[in-house]
């Protein structure tokens, strides 16, 4: 059974294609990750799925409802936690929840019951009467997630849920998300540009770059497809290494900001070759490492760039910095 079916979804902004003819399915009960650099179109996809933005063409079915034909129905059946904070800081945690419950027309008794339950779930029950402006970033995030669950959505959208949070809070949040998925059976769709987050949390991942889906599978499968090992070399002459290594055992090689990443089988066997080749050609190597492929390597393999490089290519860099600054 599908929770979401996306069909040829496209969104253009003034001739700029943000989402380019994207189609995919998300199964009910899944944790699905949209992975990609900032500006890849992840948030735009979420905005269209949650009926905030109208697609230029194509459509999607969310919980058996068409996003074009039944906006209200879709809105009632989904919960969403935005990338940027969307709480009223001048209200208390309880009041924020209550406001939401009233907007979704949850009857009073049920509303009070659920608010108490959810605030307990996100461990905010003793702060329920404090103004949100006194909350830390992690507490706000948890409150937003609790709020998104108040009307018992079948699908929960999380847009960069852990952006700007410290590692400990991130781990904590991951646990919540996993529990929610398991215990309540909620389908969760999250966007992230943290590869480890997608790897750890998601059962399926769609890698998005420049508005297109370039790969879609389980993280495990994506990494296996890449296969073998990955050798990463840090060197001031990265480009030189890149041009010198032309052996047959190299499956894929990429050079990117001071690093060379080689994808190959049996890395242990070939690493000495690489080192002697480098010293032969008088190329300095600062460090060298072998590891199993990560999603980062998958992204690199598909796009020829690391996710971070791709990010700093875009003008979004400034916006991103502003956003982080505002969140502080």
């Amino acid at each position: 059974m599908f929770a979401i079916k996306v069909e040829n979804l496209t969104k253009e902004f003034d001739g700029l294609v943000a989402v380019d003819n994207v189609s995919f399915d998300i199964e009910a009960g899944e944790i699905f990750g949209l992975l990609g650099p900032n500006g890849a179109g992840k948030t735009t996809i979420l905005s269209m799925l949650s009926t905030i933005l109208k697609p230029t063409s194509g459509t999607a079915i969310v919980n058996d409802l068409d996003i074009l034909k039944d906006e209200d129905g879709v809105r009632k059946s989904i919960g969403i936690v935005f990338q940027d904070q969307s709480l009223d800081e001048e209200l208390t945690a309880y009041e924020n929840m209550d406001f939401h419950g009233r907007l979704y027309r949850i009857p009073k008794n049920l509303r009070q019951e659920r608010i108490a339950e959810l605030l307990k779930l996100v461990e905010l029950e003793d702060r329920k009467d404090s103004l949100v402006k006194t909350f830390s970033g992690g507490m706000r995030r948890r409150l937003e997630i609790a709020r998104g669950l108040l009307h018992h959505p079948k699908v929960l959208f999380l847009d960069e849920p852990t952006l700007g949070l410290d590692p400990q809070t991130r781990n904590h949040l991951w646990q919540y998300i996993e529990n929610l998925n398991k215990e309540k059976g909620i389908t969760i769709i999250l966007t992230t540009h943290y590869m480890d987050e997608a790897d750890k949390l998601c059962e399926k991942v769609a890698i998005i770059d420049m508005g297109k889906i370039i790969a879609l599978d389980t993280p495990q499968k994506l990494k296996e497809d890449l296969g073998g090992d990955v050798i990463t070399i840090k060197s001031p002459d990265a480009d030189k290494i890149y041009s010198k290594i032309k052996a047959s055992w190299v499956k894929n090689i990429e050079s990117h900001d001071g690093f060379v990443t080689i994808n190959l089988e049996n890395a242990e066997k070939h690493i000495t070759e690489i080192v002697s080749l480098s010293s032969h050609n008088n190329i300095d190597i600062e460090s060298i490492s072998i590891h199993k492929p990560t999603l980062e390597d998958v992204f690199l393999n598909f796009t020829g760039k690391t996710i971070r490089e791709q990010e700093f290519n875009t003008k979004d860099q400034m916006r991103m910095r502003q956003r982080l600054w505002r969140r502080r």
Binding site: S50, T51, I52, E71, D72, R75, K76, I80, F82, D84, S86, L87, H100, L103, Y104, R105, R147
Partner: peptide, 8 residues
């Protein structure tokens, strides 16, 4: 405003 506008 987003929270309000995305509500049904």
């Amino acid at each position: 405003l987003k929270e309000t506008l995305v509500a049904p």
